[in-house]
Nucleic acid binder design. Structure first.
Lengths: 287, 287
DNA sequence: GCAACGCGATACCGCGCCGGTATCACGCGA
DNA sequence: TCGCGTGATACCGGCGCGGTATCGCGTTGC
């Protein structure tokens, strides 16, 4: 199977409509229709059931969609990382991605310690909204990531645990809720004038809701200070908090585990060194 | 990048020689040469350094070889699993692979328990030599596997622990070594007339050495009875041992952990059910 | 009940790309 | 210096991809 066929199949499967898929792929409908038929003939299975309303996946088709997405991501990851492996000024580079604004103290310590290593390579840090790190690691935009359990999906990655923390609700100082002894997660989500902020989805759009649209931690702390939002965060965020903020314990919030994760088939010297440094600093290997 | 290009690249990288790679691919040398040049131009990096002795990988090339092998395996896995997902007689099938002959009691229990589930699908069991299970899971010849730490590479798989056992050396009854109170691994490998057996590599060939060539546990136990070999195995193998065999503890052999493993992007209903049953029976999830 | 619409499939065509043969350029060893 | 082995280039033929035009068919609307 060629990646071209896989791309075509995924487009049709996602659109459930050959015409729209063709449009998305920038081609005409008939060749796409034919390509899908050829793929079905080569695989030896019907991938879609045709109806006058469009195309629906069969069981085999669902399998190919699930597996094919991962496979296509792997191919694109291989290409991206190869392109990035071109030695720039005699020195390779590693791309590390993390939640924007979070765990800044931990990351500063890690990067400083790694930079002091004799064989350290340059580390490019890419900060992105929560939940975007896993996909970046999977499709090769990053080589190594700081992830957070239980929020991020670690499946397919190797990982070392860096730290475990409880979560607290950060609210504007002086707000009535700041005097509460403790809250539940459900309560923290339904404070009338302090809606939880909204983070962008993978495609960059935002879910509906009353909360403000955000991209990083600086923005959210500013909004909390302005009395426009409340946010559930690991305790360590308190050190960045400063004036104008108060902290309320949340009784039933799960503890959050910060890990350093990497795709196992992608251990360049840079990634290995970075992980080794992290393990040395935080010493509690897992994977 | 197309999988055709990836296959060509991997062949040339592995052969370090365009001509031999072309022969292996069943094509002439010039188009392969051109395809590699095109790939390099499209990626924007030199993947090989050309010498009059052949082709050597650059750093970028090494990255593409490492990542590309995994990516190609993922594509082939997608295709194989799709082909297998064709509903056969109204019933899907799951392929489970395990070391030939080993852990038969555990597997029998697992398969019986699963077959009793209301929504169980057919399970095809594929027994293969030690070390072949991981690759089969990676390239889609199997959906779920019984693996053994620390021998098998679990990276990229999700897994649940089933049991942990110590290892013992199985020797012919009456052999002088059977009267030893305990041995080290090094000692167990160097008993003059009882060489460790040889298992096939992934390509089916055997490493050099004095020991007999084997493919499954039945063969090895027979050979041990005949006084031709000694083998290091988990304790549970004793139950299959029967007459003519003796067991010697091995002091420094690492304990072996039996796990059920599966590729995270490939959780069909059958795999999920099988894993659920295994966890229920052995209850010690690992992630 | 019939016409119009929307869906995917088919027919046909042209061109680009892939793979083939023949040959070249070049470094190395005899 | 010549021959050998390496990969690269030149050129050609055919397959396959993608394009336009059109069909078959089921659904929907009046």
């Amino acid at each position: 199977m060629e990646t071209r066929e896989l791309r075509y199949f995924i487009a049709v499967a996602e659109e459930s409509h050959v015409g729209r898929a063709a449009q998305r792929l920038g081609m005409a409908q008939p060749p796409l229709s034919r390509a899908i038929s050829q793929l079905e003939r080569r695989i030896g299975a019907h991938l879609f059931v045709r109806s006058p309303r469009g195309m629906t996946l069969t069981t085999a088709g669902e399998t190919l969609l699930r597996e094919g997405r991962a496979a296509l991501a792997a191919v694109e990851a291989a290409e991206r990382r190869t392109r990035r492996a071109i030695v720039a000024a005699g020195r390779a580079t590693v791309v590390l991605t993390a939640k924007a604004g979070a765990s800044s103290e931990l990351m500063a310590k890690l990067l400083d310690a790694y930079a002091a290593e004799p064989d350290a390579v340059d580390v490019e840090v890419v900060l992105s909204p929560p939940g975007h790190q896993g996909p970046m690691l999977r499709d090769g935009r990053a080589d190594v990531a700081i992830l957070h359990q239980p929020f991020d999906d670690l499946s397919g990655f190797d990982a070392d645990t860096l730290c475990v923390e409880d979560q607290v609700l950060i609210v504007p100082a002086g707000h009535p809720v700041s005097r509460a002894a403790s809250l539940t997660v459900a309560e923290s989500r339904s404070i009338p004038d302090l809606p939880p902020p909204r983070w962008p989805r993978l495609d960059g759009t935002y879910p509906d809701g009353p909360g403000p649209e955000l991209r990083d931690l600086t923005q959210v702390l500013q909004l909390v200070r302005l009395g426009r939002a409340a946010i559930l965060m690991p305790e360590s965020a308190r050190v960045n908090a400063g004036e104008g903020l108060a902290v309320v314990p949340v009784s039933d919030a799960p503890p959050v585990t910060t890990v350093i994760a990497w795709p196992p088939q992608s251990v360049s010297a840079g990634v290995a060194g970075l992980v080794r440094t992290a393990s040395r600093l935080y010493a509690s290997p897992r994977g």
